[in-house]
Write a protein that binds this DNA or RNA. Structure first.
Lengths: 230, 230
DNA sequence: GAAAATATATATCGATTGACATAGTTTATC
DNA sequence: GATAAACTATGTCAATCGATATATATTTTC
């Protein structure tokens, strides 16, 4: 009999054990996808890391791709949760024609700080950060979902704020490139922590605060250069 | 008889045909490693792309890893060539206790501009840029060579200049993080050009000039914020 | 406690991978 | 033009991949 590729969620009160297995698979898969990439991480490795047998992956996620998509969906939900504090205020400010440059700059800083929070908090941060970095280069089935979400939650808000501060159109490719450079300040920290650069600093505790401060200071400096009349 | 895993170089005047085959393999491999990653690119794909048969790879490069290392070596040599114009002047300025903040800032801009040149010029730029981005996440045998070179040619010079401008120690983790953020402005443009962001702008012709200008302006703004007494 | 649904384990499939043994072809040197 | 070196082509190897068929164990429902 063919099993329905169920998501595994929504089983209320019946079997809590399966939910646990599902979560263990997700955790092991996140670490291995982050460390070895989508093609590099084998389903056998993942099953072994989760302490389950091979067909459990098919049972819970249909196939390898379904497992990967489930992970991406978790990250997307996490991102939306962390950004939900700032984005409404950003939208309000963008709708307000009276918003000042310093107000907009402050919101830009807060948006970037929220992005820093996304990549530095929660369980398995190091692995989640690597998935972010891998999304820049890999071409895995589920990544377009993550790109779409990143554009909506992070890039577009920053672009809109930055364009208003610069007094230019959002459609101007120059503003797209300027915004990319701005966000690049944060994305660079998503690289492999085994790299010589990040091995030296580490992204825990007080260094996260320092990182937010640096992003804020450098962003404000850039915004200040954009509005010389003030 | 077992063939010596020769590098293929140095054959002077004898057989020029093999040199051509070797180059074709390198070109096809660069594109495929960039597009699919080290594990994702199969030797059969590479051989087919180069118009040669499978054992030719072993003949010229020993094995898959040797082929990859040869590509990295090409990129490293290219990087050194592009950076050789600025780095001596950077070293001279760092040795000069009288160097002013504006001189150091100007050299920092030129170093970053040279880095932009590295990732935007030469043949197969798109693929080479992707290798740079992949170096941030992948763990392929030859990449430590590239990391080492990147530290030496790009990161450390920027760190030294930036620390002097800030009046802080190079060993200060804050300066490491600030320098990372600075370089992140450029690295972000190395991502997959099929991504929605870069698909919109494109990194050819006048956009390269615009990119250099943006990096310069934003870097100067950050440096200016570091030296408020001026 | 019997039946049904849920969950886990064993064994194996075809396809693809990197590598290689072997043989044939071309080119330069003497 | 014979000999050796440089180069290219054919066929095959064990290992690993994702996926699945099948059987067993556990838990819930009635």
């Amino acid at each position: 009999m063919i099993n329905i590729p169920t998501t595994g969620r929504g089983r209320q009160g019946t079997q809590a054990r399966g939910e646990d297995t599902r979560r263990r698979i997700l955790e092991a898969a996140l670490d291995l996808f982050a460390a070895n990439g989508y093609e590099g991480a084998s389903t056998r490795q993942i099953a072994e890391g989760a302490g389950v047998n091979l067909p459990a992956i098919q049972y819970y996620f249909g196939n390898k791709e379904g497992l990967y998509r489930a992970i991406i969906e978790d990250i997307v939900a996490d991102t939306e949760r962390h950004m939900s504090g700032v984005l409404p205020r950003v939208r309000a400010a963008l709708d307000d024609p009276e918003a000042t440059a310093s107000e907009l700059s402050e919101l830009l800083c807060q948006t970037l700080e929220a992005f820093v929070t996304v990549v530095t908090s929660g369980p398995q941060v190091d692995s989640r950060r690597l998935i972010f970095a891998r999304a820049e280069v890999e071409e895995t089935p589920g990544l377009d979902r993550m790109h779409e979400n990143g554009m909506q939650q992070i890039f577009n808000p920053c672009l809109a704020l930055f364009a208003r501060i610069y007094g230019k159109s959002e459609a101007d490719p120059e503003m797209t490139m300027r915004t990319m450079a701005l966000i690049g300040q944060v994305v660079i920290f998503c690289n492999n922590h085994k790299r010589p650069i990040l091995k030296a600093v580490g992204l825990e505790g007080e260094n996260v605060q320092l990182m937010k401060q640096i992003v804020r200071e450098q962003t404000l400096a850039i915004c200040r250069a954009a509005t010389p009349e003030k």
